[in-house]
């Protein structure tokens, strides 16, 4: 069992799809808990992330890693999907109007899912009013707006403004992602910016924790 786990981390780091999937399959047959297998695959993913940061891997490799991870999830839960672990409304996600880039969005949503968040994907080229309607009908406390091109910034700004006009702004935390920085955040009026898919998940956990605590304080 220990051997399988060791091989699994290395195989994931090397992005050897066949080996990863066959190790997971064998592990499941041997009765290794799915959570243990997932944890090993996740450790391998962390290594992939480190190698990406060092320039040893490129975006295509990162996508390959996400693909392998997706298949491992399917193998582990037989395609039933990961049950959201928390009772909160979904995080709303979308690439803003006039932009179609969604790789970072998809990877981030995968990580959020894996960490137990419910996520509602609005897709790409999403008009501001569609975000507003989604927040309204789901009561979501977090909205993630992504975009890679310059005019995505205008769309992000417009979406933030429309949420404000609809009176939803105080109850909504807005995170922007893609080619963004502090200047873009200020320009758009969003609350947070991130270029790191993994950190968005930590940030969301913190936001939910704070909002949940606030609610407890208010109702007690």
């Amino acid at each position: 069992m220990l051997k399988i786990q060791k091989i699994l981390v290395g195989a994931m780091a090397k992005l050897d799809e066949e080996l990863v999937l066959s190790m997971v399959e064998q592990g499941l047959k041997m009765g290794v808990p799915p959570a243990v297998l997932l944890e090993e695959v996740r450790s391998g993913l962390v290594r992939v992330g480190e190698m990406y940061a060092q320039g040893a891997y490129f975006l295509a490799d990162f996508i390959m890693a996400a693909e392998i991870f997706r298949e491992v999830l399917l193998a582990v839960d037989h395609g039933e999907g990961v049950e959201p672990l928390n009772p909160f409304p979904p995080i709303i996600f979308g690439t803003v109007e006039n932009d179609i880039h969604d790789i970072g969005k998809n990877i981030t949503m995968g990580i959020l899912n894996y960490n137990g968040f419910a996520v509602l994907d609005l897709g790409v080229n999403v008009p501001a009013n569609v975000f507003v309607n989604a927040v309204k009908s789901n009561g979501s406390p977090v909205v993630c707006l992504t975009g890679l091109i310059t005019n995505a910034y205008d769309s992000m700004k417009r979406t933030v403004e429309l949420l404000d006009e609809a009176g939803l702004r105080p109850a909504t935390t807005i995170i922007i992602g893609g080619l963004v920085n502090e200047k873009v955040r200020k320009f758009t009026g969003a609350d947070y910016w991130s270029t790191d898919c993994g950190k968005v998940s930590e940030l969301c956990r913190e936001i939910f924790r704070m909002r949940y605590l606030e609610r407890q304080v208010l109702t007690s």
Partner: peptide
């Protein structure tokens, strides 16, 4: 500045190909 390039409605539109950040 940000304002020089954004919110002008001129010259900054269209679906671009910044698959960019991609290839590092």
């Amino acid at each position: 500045a940000m304002q020089d390039i954004c919110a002008s409605g001129e010259g900054v539109t269209g679906v671009s190909q910044l698959l960019a950040s991609s290839f590092r």
